[in-house]
Every structure is written in C-alpha cells, then in structure tokens.
C-alpha cells in the first residue's frame, strides 16, 4: 500500500474477482441444468443482480448527488420496452440480439432521462421529487396508450436471453464504471453539490449540467436493468413499472445506505433474501405468508428511526475503497502551489 504509484491495483483486484465470480456462476449454471443446484437459488441471485444495478444507479442520484428523485422505475420501463420491442422485431438471435437490444435499452433510457432531466432540474427539493414522479407516471401512461407495445395488457413473447451469467457480466461492468466515476472528479462534484450546492457553484461547477449528467447515467443504467428484466421475465406490463416499483427500489437503497456502492449491494441482498426467507419461513400457513407484506415496511420504518444512514451510509467496504493517497513527506513541495 505504501507504493503510491500502484494505485491502479483496483483493476487487478477487480479483474481477479470478476474472473472467479464468473467461473463460479458458469459452474453453478451447468450444475443446475443437471438438477444438482436448485434453480430457485439461481433465480434469487439473478433478481438480486438486476436490482443491484437498479439501486446502485438510483444511488448516484439520490445518494451521491443528494437529490430526491422518485421516478426511477420509469427509466426501467423505457429500457424494458425498448429491449422487448427490439428483441421481438429484429431479425437477430443469440448474442448479437442481446447486445443490440440491451444497447438500445441503455441509449433509449439515457435519452429519455436526459430530456426529463432538462425539465426536472429547473426545480429542487420536494418539487424535484414530485416532478420526477410525474414523469414516471406519464411514461407508464404513455406505454399504456401505445397499442404496438401491448397497451395496458402488457408485452408478451419476449425471448429469454437473460441468464445469471449475463446479469453478472452487466453488474460487474456497472460497478467497474461506477467505482471509477464516484472516485473521480465527477463523483466528487456530485458529493460537493450535495453537501453545499452554493459553494459548489461558486467553485465554477455548472450545477444543472452536472445534475443532468448524473441523471442521464442513472437512467441509462436503469434502462439496462429494465432490458435484462424484460428478457428474463419474458412478459412485462406497464403497471409493474409504476411508483410501487420505485418505492421498492427506495426501500432497498435506504436500507443499504446512500452514498455507498457497497451499501446498494448489501441493501438489495438483505431485502430480497429476507423477503424470501420470510416467505419460506411462514409457508406453513398461507395467511402468514402475506404477513411479510407488512413486515418489510415495518423494517424500513424501524431502520429509518434508529439508523438514519442505513446499514452502510457513506461508508464503503474496504475492497471498494480507493487506495489511500500516500505521499512521503520529502516529496511535498510548494512548487506548484507558489506557481
């Protein structure tokens, strides 16, 4: 760690971690084909993976940038419907189809996010929350009124392209990108705007431009997750992207803690696994299974009252922290400072 020149050692660490993780997943997938591993566990892992992409992208806006946006599910809908439409209409199959449909999902959601951001960031605070929620509702309502997307009945017959492996690849790529962003100048500007927007602006930061930039990135990655989701479920309806989905994402985000990439992983994992455990645990009585629906909001309320920053607010697991800047005393000069 003392060697300051070795700061890209994150890349090496991350590469090894990814390779090991992907190998394990490939083995798991093979085993599950023979029935040696329960398909159900793979399903849970896939759902966790997709939600981590969603929640960590929401974290960029609600955590790092500190704005309260309430329309994330809308961007997910953009991505999901773009991917669904392209994967059924285009004359492609297999790998090229995945790349094209997911790429288009990212771009479509990003463009919509950018356009919405242009309007939404004319407001701040509570009004931003309202306006983003309004756009979420409008997106859902628009899809309901487009017949070629299935209207309110939903979009059926989407080919199943998404597997645990592809979700893992997307998730790793997302985290590679987010890690570098939040530990770069870009990420520092976001936090600066959150901490004191006036001081940030007086340092020459064009606040609205930066905010819209973050919003676009977050929307694009929500689009990616939406695309994966559509090609995993094979059936999507507009109603599954309304504000209830946004709320669920918020619950997972604040459970894990904002402003922390590790927090998003932890929040999603804890939430989904505890929901599933609760379902299994209570399965002896079908009426009790429904009890989990009131347990999850209770958990959220209790966490908010007792631990407002969530499980990992503004803190990172060690392996997601950048290497500490180490500069030997004798290397500190005043040359550049004094011009």
């Amino acid at each position: 760690m003392k060697d300051y020149s070795n700061s890209c050692w994150f890349k090496i660490r991350f590469g090894i971690f990814s390779a090991v993780l992907l190998c394990i997943i490939l083995i798991l997938q093979e085993l599950s084909k023979n029935g040696w591993v329960n398909q159900y566990y793979l399903h849970i892992l896939t759902v966790i993976g997709m939600n981590v992409i969603l929640v960590s992208s929401l974290n960029l806006v609600n955590g790092y940038l500190g704005e309260f946006a309430l329309g994330h599910a809308g961007f997910m809908a953009c991505g999901a419907y773009t991917a669904a439409y392209l994967s059924t209409q285009l004359d492609l199959t297999g790998f090229p189809a995945i790349i094209v449909s997911l790429g288009a999902a990212i771009i479509a959601a990003g463009i919509i996010g950018y356009l919405i951001g242009l309007a939404a960031f004319k407001t701040v605070g509570d009004y931003l929350a309202i306006i983003t929620l309004g756009f979420n509702m409008i997106i859902v309502n628009a899809i309901q009124n487009i017949d070629s997307l299935g209207g309110p009945r939903g979009f059926t017959g989407i080919p199943k392209y998404t597997s645990l492996f592809s979700v893992a690849v997307c998730l790793l790529a997302t985290y590679y990108i987010f890690y570098h962003l939040v530990n770069s100048n870009f990420g520092r500007l976001w936090v600066a705007i959150r901490e004191n927007s006036l001081a940030a602006e007086l340092m020459g930061i064009n606040i609205n431009q930066v905010k819209n930039f973050v919003f676009t990135i977050a929307a694009a990655f929500a689009g990616l997750a939406g695309g994966l989701w559509a090609e995993y479920q094979q059936f999507i309806t507009p109603r599954s992207f309304d504000y209830i989905k946004t709320t669920e994402l918020l619950v997972m985000l604040y459970l894990g803690g904002t402003g922390s990439l590790s927090g998003s992983i932890l929040g999603v994992t804890v939430y989904i696994i505890s929901m599933e455990l609760l379902r299994n645990f209570l399965s002896f009585n079908p009426q009790l299974v429904e009890m989990r629906m009131i347990v999850s909001p209770l958990i959220l309320i209790i966490i908010m009252i007792t631990r407002q920053s969530g499980l990992l607010g503004n803190r990172e697991w060690r392996w997601l922290r950048p290497a500490e800047a180490y500069i030997p005393e004798e290397n500190i000069t005043h040359d550049s400072v004094k011009n």
């Binding site: 929350a129 619950v251 604040y254 904002t258 909001p297 959220l300 309320i301 009252i305």
Partner: peptide
C-alpha cells in the same frame, strides 16, 4: 429524506 422514506414506509 429519512422523513419522506419513513412516510412511504408508513403508507405501504
């Protein structure tokens, strides 16, 4: 934000 999230939780 924690107040708003709590309110969402109460609603659900």
């Amino acid at each position: 934000m924690s107040l708003v999230i709590t309110a969402l939780g109460v609603g659900i």
